[in-house]
């Protein structure tokens, strides 16, 4: 845990959070325009292998039992016309985050880059944000005074010019990461050509996680709301 705590503190220090509310290095690039980050998860490519879950867990060192990413295993149809699908769920980085409005301490911020972060200096560990999140993306870390934690798109990796850990590790390339203000390569192709949908769209919150897939898969998206569903087929 000592290792984890040191790493965690370094992380926030490096983002300048001790001094600034908006870390320059992430939000401002040299041209003075802002990157606007988003991730597309292609449900027609996700193999449900959980490499991203393991990678994230190890990289972020989340507490026992808590994960920043979960893969919901959903079954469509009945035997024999049946197939499993896998829906990776993580913080949606909502445009108007319910967790942000729920936090009485103002610890949760929506950065210009679109990333929703929690300022641990302000987090009181009461966990109002936990209840507010409809997809259960948040958890409390009792190793750090019960502060609230969730996916931050690996903000410290972005700062180094790396992609989020889940994107880097995904074997089938089902996770496509990019800048909405300056879309390039495969990300651009997905934005322009593929059918994309969002969990957050259901209640007008948009967000930065997009799913790609056919309409049949789109109809499955409400299932991510079912936070208690336990369908473990190990």
């Amino acid at each position: 845990m000592i290792e984890g705590s040191r790493r965690q503190l370094l992380k926030w220090a490096s983002l300048g959070l001790f001094g600034l509310s908006i870390p320059k290095s992430i939000d401002a690039n040299v041209q003075g325009t802002y990157p606007s980050y988003a991730m597309i998860v292609d449900l027609e490519r996700c193999m449900g292998c959980e490499a991203c879950v393991v990678s994230c867990k190890i990289d972020q060192n989340t507490p026992q039992g808590a994960f920043n990413i979960k893969i919901k295993s959903i079954t469509i149809g009945n035997f024999p016309q049946v197939r499993p699908i896998f829906v990776p769920v993580q913080c949606n980085h909502c445009d108007n985050p319910p967790c942000l409005s729920a936090c009485s301490k103002g610890a949760i911020k929506k950065l210009k880059s679109g990333i929703v972060i929690t300022d641990w200096r302000l987090c009181d560990g009461k966990g109002q944000c936990i209840k507010a999140c409809p997809i259960g993306a948040r958890h409390l870390d009792e190793r750090f005074g019960n502060r609230s934690f969730k996916c931050d798109l690996c903000i410290e990796r972005l700062e180094k010019g790396l992609k989020p850990a889940c994107v880097e590790t995904c074997p089938s390339g089902a996770r496509i990461f990019g800048d909405l203000n300056n879309p390039k390569g495969e990300f651009r192709e997905y934005i322009s050509k593929k059918h994309l949908f969002q969990y957050g769209a259901r209640f007008g919150r948009g967000g930065r996680i997009f799913y790609a897939g056919n309409e049949n898969l789109e109809s499955m998206i409400p299932a991510v709301e079912n936070r208690d569903e336990k369908r473990d087929f190990s």
């Binding site: 292998c49 959980e50 490499a51 879950v53 393991v54 990678s55 190890i58 790396l162 880097e168 590790t169 995904c170 074997p171 390339g173």
Partner: peptide, 9 residues
């Protein structure tokens, strides 16, 4: 970086 699966991690 190339990709790896969860076992490698």
């Amino acid at each position: 970086s190339g990709s790896v699966c969860g076992k490698a991690k």
